[in-house]
Design a protein around this nucleic acid. Structure first.
Lengths: 221, 221
DNA sequence: TTTTGTCTTACGGAAAACCGTAAGACAAAA
DNA sequence: TTTTGTCTTACGGTTTTCCGTAAGACAAAA
């Protein structure tokens, strides 16, 4: 089993139960920090002293406070940690439940496991640790399903850009110019209109307001 | 100090740390349940057996699962609990950070304390329990401030209705009819336009899409 | 009751968005 | 190279929204 684990979690109560869970698993060394910057320091120092961590368990969102941080988000921490210590296993423990966001962690940050703060999270975390220790990914099947089901509609890059621009306050008729600047392909006003219609049709909406809220909630923009 | 406390929290890890925190406070009896319906049963039974709870600590959102519940939300539980046991103290322990929503709990459900799942939540919970035991409310000052600061703009009932209708897919030009049906006062098309302009102006927006997302995120609609 | 100021409504022109159709571009197949 | 089908773009008319102005309603003060 893992010998040395680092917990990065700013929420005190979550941190407490993480400690208890790892204690149950009889992990030799479990260190815990409340800030991303601290986590990175500990990882660096452990590596330097030739006693590297086996596993990092981290949250995604860290609340800003007086203690200003360089690394503001769990994803930043993961990226930097992998820089200094590529073999480090990473399990994300977060309340995030937007499939697109979670999927992104596996695809782009290559995390080893994801445990959502939810009903049986403590049990799931134990399972995740065992699974990752066995060199496998712990990716709840529900996520893959959810991506297929919920994201029944496949947003293209242009789609996301269009909705983002609307959300940023751009007028629809100006969007073609911006798309051309960014060298995105279907960029005529007609195409913008068409894409907006297709998106709304697919999701059962009639107004752009609904589309914007939907995309914001899904973490697409 | 409180003798008998009930915890209603579906998230296993949060439940674990709540138990530990109450254990630190040497509470005689702490029961914990994972569903609202169970919580209400326990409260009823305790009352019937003349051993009522002193304090309920509850989350707001409970994840639906196979185990279908009558009470789906913490607010439902609080309402029902107060019905059968009016003197019961209630502390809400949740991740909710929208001031308008939290304020609503104090105003309309008359809760005794609110502790947000955040950096020092375990410590804050202990403070909250002590404060509520002393017959005072535990309402983080930050909330009141935030309401004043963030909600720099005061939304009227009509404002909220207008944005809600847009979000529901109503065309702007049809909104006057609906406002008249609901007997809301400024209900002409001109007024709808004017209110939308005022809201956007106040919040630095130019498009309705931005306004809809803002109101959705703030929990206003 | 009259006056005054504010809020609401009505109206009309301009801008933007919507929607259908046709023309054009482009790539794959013949 | 030609053909075919699909995707993109251009265009024009209609609807909706936007925005300024003026008229009307209403309540408080004179």
């Amino acid at each position: 089993m893992f010998k040395k684990i680092l917990i990065a979690e700013d929420q005190q109560s979550a941190n407490i139960s993480l400690q208890k869970t790892l204690h149950d698993l009889q992990i030799e060394t479990t260190d815990y920090v409340y800030y991303c910057d601290h986590a990175l320091s500990w990882i660096k120092n452990a590596k330097r002293d030739d006693e590297p961590y086996d596993l990092l368990i981290t949250d995604l969102s860290f609340e800003p406070d007086n203690n200003t941080q360089v690394l503001e988000h769990g994803t930043d921490l993961i990226r930097e940690a992998r820089n200094v210590h590529p073999e480090l296993k990473v399990i994300v423990f977060s309340g995030e439940n937007r499939p697109s966001v979670i999927d992104d962690l596996f695809e782009n940050l290559n995390i080893d496991g994801y445990v959502r703060k939810a009903r049986h999270d403590a049990d799931h975390l134990k399972q995740a640790i065992h699974t990752v220790y066995g060199e496998k990914r712990y990716q709840p099947s529900a996520i893959k399903q959810a991506i297929r089901e919920e994201n029944s509609f496949e947003f293209t890059t242009v789609d996301i850009t269009i909705v983002s621009l609307l959300y940023q306050g751009e007028m629809q008729k100006n969007i073609p110019f911006i798309l051309k600047q960014r060298q995105l392909k279907p960029c005529s006003l007609s195409s913008v209109e068409k894409r907006l219609n297709i998106m709304k049709e697919a999701l059962g909406f009639v107004k752009n307001e609904q589309l914007a809220v939907y995309c914001k909630e899904k973490g697409l923009i």
